[in-house]
């Protein structure tokens, strides 16, 4: 599987010029308070990984990979491992950046708040990616882009309707009760989503006909 992970990471590395420019733009926007640092993580991570899917599709890599030893399984496994690797890397960068921004603005660094912001960001990002991956494996990247857009758009509208129509103050109460365990709960939920998404993607790939 190592080879497949290296392939995704080398592809990301090949795009380093573009990613560096993007990161510099984000840094500039964050320093000038135009964008919250916690947005960088999901944007960068999703974009980086989606670009690997696009390049794979362009060169029909999945076809070729399936002809390699354990290709179907390792193809999927590597994508999920590479995603975690990318998240860790971008998290480290954003954490350092957040601290630097606070120092730059002479604000005290609130590590507790920072930790919750970053973990929530990771959770939200991975959640989006874990929903996306099975859809990409099932429909292909082109159709999946539309499906994901519709899905996210639908979820936002549904969320809006629910917030407007129902009294959700009880959620706040529950959040207060579990606040001490919030980080652990988020980590556990992330792992559960990771495993569910991985097994669905794997099942799709194992049955796929080329």
């Amino acid at each position: 599987m190592l080879g497949f992970i290296k392939k995704d990471l080398l592809m990301i590395k090949s795009n380093w010029k573009f990613l560096t420019i993007l990161f510099i733009v984000y840094i500039f926007m964050s320093f000038s308070n135009q964008m919250d640092i916690s947005f960088i993580l999901p944007f960068m991570s999703v974009m980086v990984m989606i670009s690997t899917f696009s390049y794979d599709t362009l060169n029909k890599w999945d076809n070729y990979a399936t002809a390699l030893p354990n290709g179907r399984k390792n193809l999927v496994k590597a994508k999920y491992v590479a995603t975690v690797f990318v998240i860790i890397l971008i998290t480290l960068l954003t954490t350092i950046l957040s601290i630097l921004i606070s120092v730059f603005h002479h604000d005290p660094v609130n590590f507790n708040e920072l930790l919750i912001t970053i973990i929530s960001s990771i959770f939200a990002t991975l959640l989006v990616q874990f929903i996306m991956y099975p859809i990409i494996y099932k429909l292909g990247i082109e159709k999946a882009r539309i499906a994901i857009f519709v899905l996210v758009f639908g979820l936002v509208i549904m969320g809006g309707i629910i917030i407007n129509c129902f009294d959700l103050s009880f959620i706040g109460k529950y959040l207060n009760i579990i606040s001490d365990y919030l980080i652990i709960i988020i980590i556990l939920l992330t792992i559960i989503f990771y495993l569910i998404s991985y097994y669905i993607s794997l099942k799709i790939m194992m049955k796929k006909e080329y």
């Binding site: 599987m1 190592l2 080879g3 497949f4 992970i5 290296k6 392939k7 080398l10 592809m11 090949s14 795009n15 690997t52 390049y55 794979d56 362009l58 060169n59 029909k60 890599w61 999945d62 076809n63 070729y64 002809a67 390699l68 030893p69 354990n70 290709g71 390792n74």
Partner: peptide, 29 residues
């Protein structure tokens, strides 16, 4: 598949990679 070499008609590694990258990748496959 460990003992089979393959050339497919129109599918291969993503074209942003190099021959050197393929060597690194294939060592792990």
């Amino acid at each position: 598949k460990e003992d089979v070499g393959v050339v497919l008609d129109d599918s291969f590694f993503p074209d942003i990679l190099t021959a050197k990258d393929i060597n690194i990748i294939m060592k792990g496959i």
